[in-house]
Simulated scan of single mutants.
Amino acid sequence: MKTKIWAHRGASEYAPENTLEAFELAVRQGADGVELDVQLSKDGELVVIHDETLNRVSNHKGYVAEYTLKKLKTFHVNKHFPQYGKTIIPTLEEVYQLLKPTNLTINVELKTSNNFYPGIEEKVIALADKLGMSDRLLYSSFNHYSLLRLKKISSNVKTGILISDIIVDAPDYAANLGIDAIHPRLNILQIPDFVKSSKEKGIEVNPWTVNDETQMRILAEQGINAMITNKPDVCRKIVEKRKLE
C-alpha cells in the first residue's frame, strides 16, 4: 500500500496555515489530502483556525469564539507569512468548495478540547451532507467524546482519535470505541508493534507531524496509511521514489 500524504493545515511550511492559500498550494504540491481545524465563531459559524485565540497567527488578540464571522473576516492571519498579504480565516464551507473538484481526503479536526463548542458535531455533519462531501471526510479530535457524538449522529462517519501522550493499548482502545483510525504524535510510534497491532485490528495509523525526510522514508517503508506533514512536496518525492524502488 502506498502511503498517502495529508497536508497539515495545508502546505503550512510555505503558506499561512489553515487558509485557502495553504490548501490550494497543497493541491498543487501533490497532497492526497489535507488536515484542518474547525471551531465556532460567536454567531455559530464553522471557521477554520487552529488556536482558540488569534494571537499566534494574527496581529489581533482574543478568542475566536468572542468574534462574529463578519468580524473574523476583517482579520488577517498572515503574521508569519506577510508576503501573502490579506489572508483571512476561511469558513469550513469555503474550504469544502475549494477542494470539492479534487479527490483529496479532508481530515477535519474538531477543536473541542478546551471549548466544547456545543452543537459543532451536528453542524459539521449537516454541512457535509449539504455539499455531498461525507464520503471524503475523516473527523479527528483530542476530545474523544466528540467523536462518539459524531458516530451517534451519523453511524457512517469515519473518525480518528488524536493522541499526544502514551496510552496503553491504544489500538484496543480505538477498536473498542468503534473508531476507524489513530492519529498519534510521531514519537508514539516508538512503541513496539504499534503499527502492526493497529493494522491487525483494522485501525488506520496517520501520524503527525512528519517533516523530517528520514522519518518520512521510515514511515513509507512501514506502510503507514497517511503521513500528516507541513511539507507535502518533500513527502511526495519520497513516497514516489519508494514506489519506483
Rank of each mutant, 00 (worst) to 15 (best):
N206S: 08
S140D: 06
F116M: 09
T229E: 02
L69M: 07
S113K: 15
R185I: 07
Q190N: 13
E93V: 11
L219S: 01
D32F: 03
K100T: 10
V34D: 11
R185E: 08
L72S: 11
S12G: 12
E109T: 13
G223N: 05
M227I: 15
P207T: 13
L244G: 02
T19Y: 07
G119N: 09
G30P: 07
L127C: 14
I89T: 06
K130A: 15
L54F: 12
I161T: 13
Y139I: 05
V205G: 03
S154Y: 04
T68A: 08
D180Q: 05
A170C: 05
L186G: 01
V205Y: 02
L40T: 11
Y67S: 03
A31L: 12
D180M: 04
H183P: 00
I153H: 09
F23L: 07
A181E: 05
L148P: 01
I203F: 05
K243L: 13
G44T: 03
L20C: 07
G160E: 03
G178F: 12
T229W: 01
K152W: 06
H144Y: 11
A181W: 06
I218E: 02
N206D: 08
Q215I: 01
Y117C: 05
N187K: 14
N115Q: 04
E200D: 05
I218R: 01
M216C: 02
T112M: 06
Q222V: 01
L189P: 00
D129Q: 15
S58I: 11
V210M: 01
L189N: 00
K123Q: 14
L147N: 12
H76M: 04
I228P: 03
G33F: 03
A26R: 05
A7S: 15
T68D: 06
V210F: 02
G119A: 10
D180N: 15
R185V: 05
N114K: 15
T74V: 05
G30E: 06
P101D: 10
S141G: 09
P101L: 10
E240N: 14
I89P: 04
M227R: 00
S12R: 09
S113R: 14
Y139H: 08
I179L: 14
C235K: 00
I228M: 13
E35W: 12
L104C: 09
T209N: 06
P82L: 10
Y14G: 02
V48F: 08
E24W: 09
N187C: 03
L162E: 08
F75G: 05
W6Q: 01
Q215M: 13
S197Y: 01
D32S: 08
K237Q: 14
R56T: 12
T229A: 08
R28L: 11
A174E: 07
K243V: 06
D169W: 03
S197P: 00
S146M: 08
Q83E: 15
F81A: 10
S198V: 08
D51L: 08
A65M: 14
V64E: 04
S197A: 15
K243E: 15
V34S: 12
H8G: 12
